[in-house]
Amino acid sequence: MIEGILEYLNQTEVIKTIVILGSMGLFFVGLFGLLSQRHIIKVFISIGIMEIAVFILFIGLSFQKGLTAPMLGDAHTSFVQMNDPIPHAMILTAIVIGMAVLALGISFAIEYYKLTGKNRLDQMNEMKH
């Protein structure tokens, strides 16, 4: 019974399905937070969670069971049977850039709070009147 379940979960299609559905669920949790929460720090946290979901989807789709990391070592002396290095490189730079841009957005929010004293999205209504 348990061996059967493990065998079923180890198939390549099932792993890809878990990756797609799981990262989609994480993305929608972040989207739910973005739409339902009003405090601005919660909004930034939700955007960060959506970013992480996209990273997981990108890395997980390039993953194949049985292949190793794209790196030479003691056991691997040639570049065969390895995962795709391109998504790793793109996500590696995207994480650093994402955090810097998040810091920029938070600095904008801090200055806005110093000027107007508002830190909730439903209070930010200067454009309405």
């Binding site: 990273f55 997981i56 997980g60 995962n83």
Partner: peptide, 13 residues
């Protein structure tokens, strides 16, 4: 997410 990246054989990320 770090645990997931390690499982996906992406140690740099």
């Amino acid at each position: 997410a770090v645990v997931l990246f390690v499982l996906f054989q992406a140690p740099d990320v």
